[in-house]
Design a protein around this nucleic acid. Structure first.
Length: 491
RNA sequence: GCCGCCAUAGUGCAGUGGCCUAGCACACCUCUCUUUCACGGAGGCAGCACGGGUUCGAAUCCCGUUGGCGGUACCA
């Protein structure tokens, strides 16, 4: 096989979504696996749907996932330009060539007429697409219609009989009846090519060996096959991975909630999670495993492993996987990743001091086993960063309303103040000793103390929490809590 | 409607004619660890869409049915 060259060819009409990025993952993995090239091409041929900033977002998402492209915007390459809008002359010249050779023709039908035609076809419950009115115009008729309509499009002259067959790498041979194919537009009236035409021209021009694109494209592949034939080119291999669908099993779209890829970045999924998860959405190494490093993915990724049926995007499993990677994460890196979430929540300064940073590191260490996504961090550990925690009414109700609660809390505070050392052991001793004085043990002392120092009933290990929180802060909180307890007991 | 693709537990996969009393993971449930939560550990629940073939033997091959999805634009 000659060199593997694959391309990721998004159109900048909005934010990339999970499905787009899954395809990019497959492209990249295949390129890296086979020592080939991964090319990024921007398909900006629909000028009406262009979204400003979309190209930047695509590149940002790819880079975040560490999917570096070998050719494309910002990195260049021998087959550029990599924006289709900069290649229109190329498409136009090929369209002209096809027209001159009688393999394509100019069509002057107005959008209105086309809409009318479609409506009638629908009413008659038939749909063969364009009625080919302009397919075999005499020169005179062509001249006349051209004068009437001002603008026209170029349509491909599809064979009227026979079948078009191609081999999909994932599904095997697929055949289509030519008579059912449309004389599709290759060049629009604004001079821009349609997807079908531009992608064929570019895939050939950029020496693409494998066209990897999602399943929604299989039914237009016969158009592309005929185009390659008409242009006298060898078609690439077609690979159609399955669609990624929502919980309702339909194609991912806005109505499925978080579709923008960036929303997963914001929620705090790690790149290695997303890469691992996306790789497994429509592909399998044929093993009973779920966790793969990037290197393992590259090593194991083959086209044969691509599944041939749609995959439902399961957020629950994504979360689980992210938890796995968070736990495996280097602590320093985890701090770096989590800090922005704390800062955005107003829990940390924008430019923290070394002390504050050290403190945050300790706190995050305690959170590492408890986070599923990074955005969990603020609500999990906010009490570490404020002067006084908010006391959860349910918690105070349950643990601070006992007659001895205020006493206990004050005693613990006393012994914290007088403790010669401040470490987990001394803290535990102090707490247990204070409880013993009142004839309390186990949960009877630990729960009230936890509520006293954190304001809530759940959290990391009590003694670790107190140690990290510090003596001063813990004592102050215990005193406050003791007052609340006294009030509760009295009321 | 027409064309195409697909069909293993709720979800994602493994399985390519006998090793399947169908395996793994998530979710869910139980137990365990434990000061709580989480993590970890041990169990459990739950599936080859249906009907015909082929074969000594079918989740695996063939046909049909049903169902799901995709496409059917001067969008990609």
């Amino acid at each position: 096989m000659s060199e593997v060259r694959v391309r990721f060819a998004p159109s900048p009409t909005g934010s990339p979504h999970i499905g787009n990025m899954r395809n990019a993952v497959f492209d990249w993995l295949f390129a890296r696996h086979s020592g080939g090239r991964f090319i990024l091409r921007i398909e900006d041929t629909d000028r009406t749907r262009l979204v400003p900033g979309a190209v930047e977002e695509i590149m940002r998402d790819l880079r975040w996932l560490r999917l570096e492209w070998d050719e494309g915007p910002e990195v260049g390459g021998l087959c550029g330009p990599y924006f289709q809008s900069e290649r229109v002359e190329l498409y136009q010249s090929y369209a002209r060539q096809l027209a001159e050779e009688g393999k394509a023709y100019y069509c002057y039908c107005s959008p209105e007429r086309l809409a009318e035609m479609r409506k009638e076809q629908e009413a008659r419950r038939e749909s063969i697409g364009y009625d080919r009115r302009c397919r075999d115009l005499t020169p005179d008729e062509a001249e006349r219609l051209k004068g009437e309509s001002e603008t026209g499009v170029v349509r491909f002259r599809m064979p009227l009989s026979g079948t078009t067959t191609f081999k999909d790498v994932v599904r095997g041979e697929i055949s289509f009846d030519n008579a059912l194919q449309d004389d599709f537009v290759i060049l629009k009236s604004d001079g821009f090519p349609t997807y079908h035409f531009a992608s064929v021209v570019d895939d050939h021009d950029m020496l693409i060996s494998h066209v990897i694109r999602s399943e929604e494209w299989v039914s237009s592949t016969p158009k592309h096959i005929r185009l390659y034939e008409a242009l006298g080119w060898e078609p690439p291999l077609f690979v159609h991975p399955p669609l990624i669908v929502g919980p309702d099993r339909t194609k991912l779209s806005k109505r499925h909630g978080a579709v923008a890829f960036s929303s997963y970045i914001e929620e705090g999924y790690l790149p290695e999670t997303i890469l691992n998860f996306l790789a497994l959405l429509g592909w399998s190494a044929g093993e009973d495993r779920d966790l793969y490093s990037i290197d393992e993915l590259i090593e194991k990724f083959t086209l044969e492993g691509i599944i041939d049926h749609p995959a439902v995007f399961d957020t629950a499993k994504l979360q689980w996987m992210n938890g796995q990677y968070i736990r495996a994460c280097d602590p320093d890196r985890l701090v770096e990743l989590t800090l922005p979430y704390l800062q955005r929540a107003g829990l940390m300064a924008e430019s923290p001091s070394p002390d504050e940073l050290r403190y945050a590191r300790e706190v995050i260490r305690l959170m590492q086993e408890r986070m599923a996504v990074l955005s969990d961090a603020p609500k999990l550990c906010d009490f570490f960063f404020v002067d006084q925690p908010e006391y959860d009414p349910k918690a105070t109700d349950k643990w601070l309303s006992k007659p001895q609660a205020a006493d206990l809390l004050n005693k613990v505070a006393d012994s914290f103040e007088s403790a010669p050392e401040w470490n987990i052991e001394s803290i535990e001793n102090a707490v247990r000793a204070a409880g013993a004085e009142l004839g309390l043990e186990g949960g009877q002392v630990i729960h009230p103390v936890r509520v006293g120092v954190t304001g809530r009933t759940v959290g990391p290990g009590l003694f670790e929490t107190i140690e990290v929180q510090g003596r001063e802060r813990s004592v102050a909180r215990l005193r406050t809590a003791a007052r609340i307890a006294a009030r509760e007991a009295a009321g």
